[in-house]
């Protein structure tokens, strides 16, 4: 009986010995296959051997199609860094930055040098320190709370209309949390830039600025954070002036629209002088 520690060491040695002789390979998505090179979506191009084997990644049989953009592929290199086998797949394969030992195989005519535009600097996403925290596309929990005007009818529903929804006035419904406030929580990817306004369900009941005029859409830039809280105040609605409900456009009475005006049923007591 071989002791357990010895077995573990033997297994590790076997893996190392196999790995030493294992060919180097990467996976990614193809960008181009032309002029003796294969390009991945990292932008890197690798020399292809004239006798390269083009296989189906699943069956390992010769592929029925030529390498083309969007197809995923596993590239296998020989010791000189030339691609000797390309396994194609329509199922997504991992797309990752190139490891250092593969990066050296990428063929490029000019000597790479850093891009100063890619160095972080202060911006709209700056942290309090002034250092740009950038955007990674991570999912951020965004909670938006709005205070509505006191004249808002108590039975009203409040919605958010956004440029991402083609300005549908009922795009995002909010929940009432008390007499003056509504709230909604959403998962939004950082980097998202959202223009939005509040409505009571239609363009006629959209919010107005404090001075009674149409207001420019609000702007939300979602930066990298775990949670983002947004507090807004709506000062007025387009169908109200101060606390007064404004007359609203009606439609003409026609045979197709026989009673367009809000009217009470007949029979209501009418006042008379005494």
């Amino acid at each position: 009986m071989i002791p357990r520690p010895v077995r573990a060491v033997c297994a590790a040695l076997a893996v190392i010995l196999l790995a030493v002789n294992a060919p180097i390979s990467i996976t990614g998505q193809l960008l181009a296959y032309q002029q003796g090179y294969v390009f991945f979506t990292t932008g890197d191009g690798f020399r292809v051997a004239p006798t390269v084997r083009i296989l189906d990644d699943r069956t390992k049989q010769p592929a029925k199609e030529a390498p083309a953009p969007r197809i995923y592929a596993r590239a296998t290199f020989d010791a000189s860094g030339t691609v000797v086998e390309l396994d194609l797949s329509h199922r997504p394969l991992p797309v990752e930055p190139l490891p250092a030992d593969v990066q050296q195989f990428a063929v490029v005519a000019s000597t790479p040098f850093p891009n100063p535009e890619l160095i972080p600097k202060a911006s709209d996403n700056a942290a309090p320190s002034g250092m740009d925290v950038g955007v990674s596309g991570k999912i951020v929990l965004v909670t938006i709370t709005v205070q509505v005007p006191p004249s808002t009818p108590f039975g009203s529903q409040i919605f958010i209309t956004t440029d991402a929804s083609g300005w549908n006035p009922q795009a995002i419904a909010m929940d009432r949390i008390d007499a003056l406030h509504f709230r909604i929580t959403r998962h939004i990817a950082s980097g998202t830039i959202l223009h939005y306004l509040y409505t009571r369900g239609s363009l006629q009941t959209e919010e107005r600025a404090e001075n009674g005029l149409d207001r420019k859409p609000r702007l939300l830039r979602v930066s990298d954070a775990d949670v983002r809280l947004v507090d807004d105040v709506v000062y007025a609605w387009a169908d109200q002036s101060g606390g007064t409900q404004l007359p609203q456009p009606n439609t003409l009475p026609t045979p197709y629209n026989p009673a367009p005006f809000p009217n009470l049923p007949p029979g209501l007591p009418t006042p008379n002088p005494r």
Partner: peptide, 14 residues
């Protein structure tokens, strides 16, 4: 020539 590019310059969407 040779200047570094943003990491996702040539990525296709999933």
């Amino acid at each position: 020539k040779g200047r570094e590019m943003p990491g996702d310059t040539f990525y296709f969407p999933d």
